[in-house]
Amino acid sequence: MNEVTEYFSDIFKGVRSLLKGMSVTGYYFLHPKEIITQQYPENRDVLKVPERFRGELVMPHTADNQHRCTGCSACQLACPNGSIIIVSDRIETPEGKKKKIIDKHVYNLAMCTFCNLCVRACPTDAIVMSNDFEHATYDRGDLIKILNQPGSKVLEGIEE
């Protein structure tokens, strides 16, 4: 007799546990407010990207096209993937000294792992991580970026 009651109580307990599980999914079915999906391209305007989000490396320029990069190559050394290459140039200062300045700050977005080490290494805070995350392009060449704008100059007084 004991086995028979056990048999039926097993069935009862099993069915009860199943019904409890169904009540959880049933709750979500009846409460569509719980839906957490974001409709991405549509919600682009209201999308909140955290301030610290590491999207891509950029070099901020002032209004009169000046940046803070001295071309010291600290970021190039800090980068673990070799995605930064500093192409420098030598000019002659008015005092007649030869001086190294930055020609191109080449940044290969395709190789970047967004570890932020370059930003930390930069002694003049010339480069920062921007929030832009929409990097898709049709041409791989577009991912190799030159961060300093053409014709831009180093901000006065940075190099001291």
Binding site: P50, E51, R52, F53, R54, T113, F114, N116, R120, M129
Partner: peptide, 21 residues
Amino acid sequence: FEETCGARLTMSYNVPGGLMF
């Protein structure tokens, strides 16, 4: 995590000597 250190999965939040932010 994204708010704290700017990355979601591969955080790299630690640096020798402390934290990145």
